[in-house]
Design a protein around this nucleic acid. Structure first.
Length: 446
RNA sequence: GCGGACGUAGCUCAGUCGGUAGAGCGCCAGGUUGUGGUCCUGGAUGUCGCGGGUUCAAUCCCCGUCGUUCGCCCCA
């Protein structure tokens, strides 16, 4: 009895047409990152457990997969290794470990899979890709880098062409100052920011109630806070507030906003939004979220921010950074489902050489090599299946062109190029053997 | 981690008030021994998610389990 084949729950495994589309998406992201000079980094899927878990508190730890050798299991030892649950913690370890070999400000990108032991649900995977870019400074990092990241993201999503999108930016110094100006202590900030982050997903009135619940001392303050955050020009409102932290955050936010515009991001796609708080409390300054205008329900498809000290657990050096991350797996699967991403098959091969007559197989190989020599992807159909079957294969594979050469063509000194594309006006072209490559190239650009 | 819904062919789903199952699409073959995507004809495929219980008899009722899915928590 064979074992029922099945994928483990919570993974996205694709058939080739979708895999090609996904790969293209990652390629675009990679190109976008490299255009700004970021350097590639890869780290292992697993880390030494205590190194990985230093930074994290209860919530994350519950989601970590531990890796254990069979020997250690037999001895009842605690697992030494654990799978990474994001790329930021491995980056901190990487930078701390290789500090003296890196060139600061260190600009790295990393596109790899991460693992989380979550209860699986739609759009929540246990294995998924993150595409991270971060800039790490030594001792300090100019604010100009905070402005560069949205520009990179803008470039990437413009090229991905998933439709109109908006990058929303905010500043946590400003938010904290704002909460202080309300007289609220630092210990309550995280809880309030967490509720504030719901704006946009949850009705304003409800958010007011939730904040009032966390901060019951001042019931009307919650409403005032939400009104301020939702104001059409919140920075102008904040100018009226005389508070040092608010002033500092406001100045940073303005500088980042203007810096990003200067890098060519249109102001229609970059918005200051004081409701963007981000759940993660290690962000200390600028924070980002990105939304597709036509699909607000997806939530943020790309987010990040500034952190004052990346690797405090691993080194005494002060390493501030700013980074942003695209959750590629979730984004891809959701866009695929909504038909934003074309699921139509495209073949990797541009040309398929058919086997019309077995004795000519060496000629087929020669033609394929010739075509590959010009940079084309070429496949040869081996074997003596009927032509109909070979063409059916070509059709399903969505190969644009098939090459036919039998004794009939050979005697006439020609090669037949069959155009299999839907919109082809001329289906078959007889060209002389010497013109094959040129003819194929001409057909492919048409 | 908590609560609800669902689980029948490769896919989408129908069905049986309890008597071991069907459609469409897809797949394979032929019509077309040098021509795919259209058309016509024929064909194959299911331990009715898994385990247990009730029953003469369970795909159907009950319990458990696994999986999927929706909401909450959290997050990409």
């Amino acid at each position: 009895m064979p074992i029922q084949p099945r994928t483990p729950p919570g993974v996205l495994e694709l058939l080739p047409p979708q895999q090609i589309a996904f790969q293209r998406m990652l390629d675009t992201i990679r190109r976008g990152f490299e255009r700004f000079g970021f350097l590639p980094v890869e780290t292992p899927a697993f880390e030494v457990a205590d190194v990985l878990l230093t930074k994290t508190g209860g919530e994350t730890e519950k989601q970590v997969y531990f890796v254990q050798s069979t020997g250690a299991i037999k001895e009842g030892k605690a697992p030494e290794l654990a799978l990474r649950f994001d790329l930021t913690v491995p980056l901190a370890r990487y930078v701390a470990e290789h500090e003296h070999h890196l060139n600061f400000p260190f600009r790295r990108y990393q596109i790899q899979r991460v693992y989380r032991g979550e209860r699986n649900q739609k759009g929540r995977y246990r294995e998924f890709y993150q595409c991270d870019i971060d800039v790490i400074g030594k001792d300090s990092l100019p604010l100009a880098y905070d402005a560069e990241l949205p520009a990179i993201i803008h470039g990437v999503f413009a090229e991905l062409a998933f439709g109109a999108f908006t990058i929303r930016i905010n500043n946590r110094k400003l938010l904290r100052g704002l909460l202080e100006s309300f007289g609220w202590g630092a210990e309550q900030h995280t809880a309030v920011l967490h509720e504030l982050d719901r704006l946009g997903k949850t009705p304003d009135a409800e958010v007011v109630e939730l904040i009032a619940k966390v901060q019951p001392s001042a019931p009307d303050a919650a409403a005032k806070l939400v009104a301020l955050v939702r104001a059409p020009d919140p920075l102008a409102e904040l100018d009226k507030l005389d508070h040092p932290a608010v002033a500092e955050g406001r100045a940073e936010l303005r500088k980042v906003y203007e810096g990003t515009l200067a890098l060519g991001v249109p102001d229609t796609q970059l918005k200051i939004d004081l409701s963007i708080a981000r759940g993660l409390d290690y962000y200390t300054g600028t924070v980002y979220e990105t939304f597709l205008d036509a699909h607000p329900k997806l939530g943020s498809i790309c987010s990040g921010g500034r952190y004052e000290n990346l690797a405090g657990h691993y080194t005494k050096s002060k390493l501030p950074g700013v980074g942003i991350s695209i959750g590629a797996t979730r984004l891809f699967s959701q866009l695929l489902e909504m038909n934003v991403i074309g699921a139509q098959a495209t073949s990797i091969a541009q040309v398929l050489v058919l086997s019309v007559e077995a004795p000519l197989s060496l000629t087929y190989a020669q033609m394929a090599t010739e075509l590959r020599g010009t940079g084309l992807n070429v496949e040869v159909y081996a074997g003596d299946d009927k032509l109909g079957k070979q063409l059916k294969y070509a059709d399903r594979a969505k190969v644009p062109l098939a090459i036919l050469l039998g004794s009939r063509e050979q005697e006439a000194g020609v090669v037949k190029i069959k155009d299999l594309r839907e919109n082809a006006t001329v289906r078959e072209h007889d060209v002389s053997r010497g013109e094959l490559v040129a003819a194929v190239q001409r057909l492919l650009v048409s």
